[in-house]
Design a protein around this nucleic acid. Structure first.
Lengths: 231, 231
DNA sequence: GTCTATATCTGGATAGAC
DNA sequence: GTCTATCCAGATATAGAC
């Protein structure tokens, strides 16, 4: 599957995401006209991710945000109640969207090897489509409150167990040969995350995402499909 | 090699590190008695890493630092000229120490496979011995000034090229079979870094570092030593 | 060498005009 | 719905006593 096809298939536009956020937070958001609100929410989230990913959420002042969005301090506060709330909204929305897309992508796929490949592609492509959010989410976990931190951890463990389950299923059906499926799943996650954590590196080298996907599939399959030790 | 042996071999004590920092920064540090200075520097760096790794360097106030070290604000400022300088000192000292230890560890080792294993063990064990620093270094890169950011990137690329070179050497001598040594080296780094980035996870599961080391060596060798495709 | 006290500034948040 | 003006807590940094 090519990335461009995935993008068409999933169709995650910033407007759509912001509309969903608006509808779910109507109570808290003081601006009532959907059209106006969505337009400004797009600006606000874009700017927040962009500034934070450059210098960190905590280091971003609301005056920075005001400057980059073109909205005044007062206006910003009609969209969120506090800086922390802004952080929460971005994180929880992103998490929900990601887990929704991923489970959709795996639905109906059978065969361990095919499921593994599909899961790898989906994760990787989704993190590319939502790159600023994935990076933000990883780097700003420690700025969350306790409850949201628990959610973030749960999320990490959930996707990991997804991979672990696929590996276990493959082992049961004789396709895979892995002793410790949990360690293997952790390694898989590390390889997936490297793409969005070190994107500057891959961009600089003009490594395409399809190339990276092909590579890590090779890398992972060499281990999980492996024949008995060749030493 | 077991971790406990490595630790004895390398013998990186916090006192020793702080003594080195003191001697190299005598000009800037206002306190002149080595014994006093080193004792307090240990407190300062320990506390900085501990607080920052919990909630981020930027979110750590100097009052926090004062509280945790037991030193007053005034006293702190006789050890560094500004909060940013404190950050710089920690980062550059850590980098220097790490690259020194790693090149020492590889000196005189011959044979690509043996060199690869040694490099993996050294990296992993060093990151364990200096865990708070490695974690800090990774997470606080964006708070550095331009020059220090360049150093951090250089450092990442340097260790990566070390692995890439080992793989190329092994390919030349017929031990390894890797097409893209740079991509493979990037993957290796990702696996090494996961250990210190997700230490909470591995600690919680009681995965020992020797176990993790054994696992990633298996994982990596399954790919680099691999026989022609088995599909 | 270290502390207390304080100057100075920045950032989050809000009230009220438009 | 948005802006300007302002409040105030908390941050870095320093001066000077001990």
């Amino acid at each position: 599957m090519k990335f461009s096809d995935f993008k068409k298939l999933v169709a995650i536009s910033r407007e759509e995401i912001c509309r969903e956020i608006f509808r779910e937070n109507r109570a808290r958001i003081k601006v009532k006209k959907e059209k106006v609100a969505v337009k400004n929410l797009v600006k606000i989230f874009d700017a927040t991710l962009s500034i934070s990913n450059r210098k960190g959420f905590h280091a971003m002042s609301l005056r920075d945000l005001s400057g980059e969005t073109g909205l005044s301090m007062g206006a910003l506060y009609s969209y969120f109640g506090s800086k922390d709330e802004l952080l929460d909204i971005i994180q929880s929305q992103g998490r929900r969207l990601a887990s929704r897309v991923l489970s959709e992508q795996l639905a109906g796929i059978t065969g361990a090897r095919e499921r593994l490949r599909r899961a790898l592609y989906s994760h990787l492509y989704l993190s590319e489509a939502l790159h600023p959010w994935f990076y933000f989410s990883y780097m700003e976990t420690k700025n969350l409150n306790r409850e949201q931190q628990r959610n973030a951890i749960e999320n990490e463990l959930y996707t990991e167990s997804m991979f672990s389950d696929i590996l276990a299923e493959g082992r049961a059906s004789g396709v895979f040969d892995v002793k410790d499926t949990l360690l293997a799943a952790a390694a898989i996650k590390a390889l997936l995350q490297d793409w969005y954590l070190k994107r500057w590196k891959y961009s600089g080298r003009k490594t395409s995402i399809e190339e990276y996907a092909g590579f890590i599939i090779d890398f992972i399959e060499a281990f999980v499909l492996r024949a008995p030790a060749r030493v």
